[in-house]
Amino acid sequence: MKETSKRTPLYAQVRDYVIDHIRSGKWRAGRKLPSETQLSKQFDVSRITIRSAMAKLVEEGIVYRVQGRGSYVGQYAGEKEPIRYAKPDLDKDGLHLVALILPKMRGNLMTRLTSGVEAGLDGSRYRILLMTTDYSQAKEEEKLREAVQAGAQGIIIYPSDGQTYNEGMLRLSLDRYPIVVLDRYLRGVETNCVCSDHYTGAYEATEQLLRQGHRRIAFVSPACAGTTSLEERLEGYRQALNDYGVIFDKSRVLERGEQEEIEAFLKDKTDLTALFGANEEIGLNAIRAAEKIGKAVPERMSVIFFDDYDHSGDARIPPTCITQQGERIGREAANRVLSLIEDPHQSRVMIRVPTRLIVRGSTAPVSEGID
C-alpha cells in the first residue's frame, strides 16, 4: 500500500481524495472544498501541487471555481443528476421552450418584461415557459431544474435579491447553457446579462432633487449588499450628491422599506426635505409615511422613486419616477438567448438599457423656510 502511494503522483492523491469524498456522499454538489492552504497542510505538499490537482478536477468537470470564493463540488450531485446542457436539434420540427423565471407575475415592470420576451420570441420556433419564485432562492433552484427537465433550450431569469451568485445558475453558465440574467449580474460569475442602467437612473433621480434646491435627501432601499442593481442605485445617489458638493451622510440611508419603518425614520430625521426610493413599493410607502406624520407631498417632502405603475399619472399625487424600459429589456434578453441557443460558446456580454426620468407631481422646489 505504501509503495502504491509512493508511485502515485502527489497531485493524483489529492484528486483521488476529493473524488472519494464526493462519491461517498460526504461532499455534495455545491459544497465548498477546503482551501489550497488547508489541503497543502493536510497532505504536506506545496500549493502548486494542490493547484495541479484542482486544475485536473476542473478540467474533468468535477469541481468548479468561483473567482475570489474558492472551489466547489460540481458534476456529482448526490442523488440528483446535475443540470447539463445538450444543444437542441434545430432541424427538428415543432415548437421549443424558453423558460422565463420571474420573482412574481404582477406589476408594471414584470408585465412589460414578459411582453418584451414574448415579442422577441415571436417569429421563432420558441415559446415561453413562465415560472415564478416569489423571491425565494430555494424555489429559484427548483424552477431552474424543472425548466431543464421540461426541455427548455434556454432560460431567462430575474434572480432573487441579495445574491452574489446562485448555485444552479453557476452550474448552467459553466456548462454553456443558454442562460440570460435580468436586472442584476452575479459577482464572480460570467453570465449574459440584460439590465437597466441603474447607476445613471439613480444619478438622474438625485440630480432632479438637487436641481430643485434639495440638499438633505434620503435614500431608502431594501438591503443593498449582494444585489448589484441596488448597489448601483446607491452609488448613483452618492455620486450625484458628491458632484453637487453635498457630503454623503450614511445616516440618511435607510435599508428597510415598510411604511412604519419609514415613518420612524422621517420622525427621527426631521431636517429631510426629499427622499429617493429604490423601488415603486418603497416610494409609495414613503409618500404615505410622510403624509401620515404631517409632511405633505410635495410641499414639505419631495419623493422620487425607481419604477412606474399603471395609471400612475391619474393618482392623487402623480409620482415623479425613473422608469425602466421593460419591453426593450425583454426583447434584448429574448434575442440574446436565441443567439446563444444557436451558438452557446459566444463570449458573454452585458447589455445595459437606458432609463427615463418622468417628472410629475411628487417633487417640487424646496419651499422657503424648510431648507
Rank of each mutant, 00 (worst) to 15 (best):
V63S: 00
S35M: 03
T206L: 00
A119H: 11
I48T: 09
A99Q: 07
R51N: 14
E118A: 14
R65A: 06
S136Y: 04
V194E: 04
A29K: 04
A152G: 04
M110E: 15
F265E: 04
E260T: 12
S362T: 07
E81Y: 11
L144T: 00
E207I: 08
V18H: 03
T191L: 05
A264T: 13
K87Y: 03
K87S: 14
R336M: 13
D122Q: 15
E3R: 12
K2M: 10
K26R: 12
K92Y: 06
K267W: 08
S52E: 15
K295L: 15
D89L: 01
V337I: 05
I62A: 12
V98F: 04
S173L: 11
E332H: 09
E79N: 12
I101D: 01
L209Y: 02
L39Y: 03
V189P: 01
E190I: 00
G74P: 01
E263Y: 03
G257M: 14
E146H: 13
Q13I: 05
V66R: 06
I179D: 00
V349I: 13
A55W: 03
E3I: 13
L338F: 06
G236D: 01
I247P: 03
I83A: 10
Y135F: 13
D16W: 00
L97E: 07
E207K: 15
S35N: 08
Y17E: 02
M350E: 13
K87Q: 15
V181N: 05
C224V: 12
L340R: 03
L210K: 07
G369F: 05
A278Y: 06
S40L: 03
M54C: 07
R125A: 08
Y72S: 02
T37E: 14
L100N: 09
G213Q: 06
H198L: 04
A264L: 10
K80W: 12
A205M: 12
Q324E: 07
E141G: 08
L338C: 10
S347T: 14
D20A: 14
E281M: 11
R233I: 00
K87H: 13
R127A: 07
K2G: 06
G226W: 05
A225G: 09
H21V: 02
I262V: 11
D307H: 12
L129S: 12
F276K: 04
A29Q: 10
Q153L: 03
A290C: 12
D249P: 03
I179Q: 02
K92E: 14
M301T: 02
I62F: 04
D16H: 11
I322D: 02
D271E: 15
G74E: 02
Y64F: 14
Q13T: 02
L275Y: 01
L340A: 11
V189S: 02
R288G: 08
L97D: 07
F306H: 13
N279R: 06
L109D: 07
E36M: 10
E190A: 10
G330Y: 01
E280I: 05
R127V: 15
S35F: 08
Q38S: 15
D343V: 09
K250N: 12
S46T: 15
M110V: 08
V180S: 02
A264D: 13
L210E: 00
H214C: 04
P9I: 09
G78H: 08
R69W: 01
T355L: 03
T49V: 13
T132N: 09
L210H: 01
P318C: 01
A205I: 01
N279C: 07
T200H: 09
T4I: 15
G154N: 08
C193Y: 00
E258H: 11
